[in-house]
Design a protein around this nucleic acid. Sequence first.
DNA 1: CGTCTATTTGAATGTACTCAAAAGCGGTGG
DNA 2: CCACCGCTTTTGAGTACATTCAAATAGACG
Lengths: 193, 193
Amino acid sequence: MDTDLIFQNINKHIQLDAIETDFFLSVLQPRTIKKKEYLLKPGDICRYETFVTKGCLRTYTIDDNGFEHVVMFAMEDWWISDFYSFLTQSPATYFIDAVEDTEVLQITKENIDRLYERVPKFDRFFRILLQNAFVAQEKRINQNLSFTAEQRYLNFIQKYPQLEQRLSQKQMSAYLGITPVFLSMLRRKLAGR
Amino acid sequence: MDTDLIFQNINKHIQLDAIETDFFLSVLQPRTIKKKEYLLKPGDICRYETFVTKGCLRTYTIDDNGFEHVVMFAMEDWWISDFYSFLTQSPATYFIDAVEDTEVLQITKENIDRLYERVPKFDRFFRILLQNAFVAQEKRINQNLSFTAEQRYLNFIQKYPQLEQRLSQKQMSAYLGITPVFLSMLRRKLAGR
DNA sequence: CGTCTATTTGAATGTACTCAAAAGCGGTGG
DNA sequence: CCACCGCTTTTGAGTACATTCAAATAGACG
């Protein structure tokens, strides 16, 4: 189990001593998810908070017309879940699946709660994660309101150049809020310069 | 100072004893904001977490072409701030102003921090607020990706019938992500049924 | 290799925007 | 209290952005 990345991630915000580190280690469950395999479907209970150590996952919905809409991607060093479902242990509204073969570390709800009790610092840690996620979302809402499709695309590839390589255009268009056909046209237009 | 509403709001999630109640009361600062008056401008430091007891505020940006984009409205019983600016005490990116004459209760950053220390329950309370806000934002992102302008409008007036009465169409269109002209056309079309 | 899905391309269409002008409405000052 | 000013809303015509449909091509995977 490769835990370097997750400890780096945690050390950005809180410092753990040896005992705390050991306890944290004991609640981590490694798992691999093959490309296109589901981690969660609507109706399931989201039982884990998931940290990506390798690969890429996505959270999305499918609308009445069968179109996908991506709420978030999570590659290495990102946390992902259906937050509401996890929190309340109620049925999920989102799909989560693997964009590529992926390796993750998972913590169950019960163990997160134990973690809060035994190592209250983690309360702070997950609060900071949530704060950052909230601010990022606020920004995305604002940009979805302010920007044209082209601006959103340029902004995306500039902000996540790694992801651009690894996602299909269909996946990216489902995040940007445009059709794959239109994204293809945009790229052709932008390439011809 | 009318504190009924804010205590109701807090009691939904945590229970305060007499001493805690007194301390909380001591950090509340009432303020009135006249219609169109600013509570915050980009570049300011957001010094307060603000609870609306009467009236309505909005958080928004103005883009390069002078168009407004509303990130959130806050009417009675809602909390509002430029969250990132408040948290880090760094320059704000959003405008906050009053849609109507408004009365609020404010808490400074210093006092929130004191509150966390003296009454750790508030840590929990504000975490719950943040969680709810996060989930609501996630939903809004998803709906902005999935829905047409008409669906977003119908969803909005169904979800916030009170707000529909109190906002100008220009303000509502800046939340929905359409032009006021197009909202006017939508309404005409929908009324003729 | 064959099948399935993603991407490209083009044409036609629809959704939402721009521009412009008129009408409505609210606040202010004489 | 009414007249005026500025801003919002309405309306229409023309336009642009993005979608749909369809067919051809390219790529991924067993």
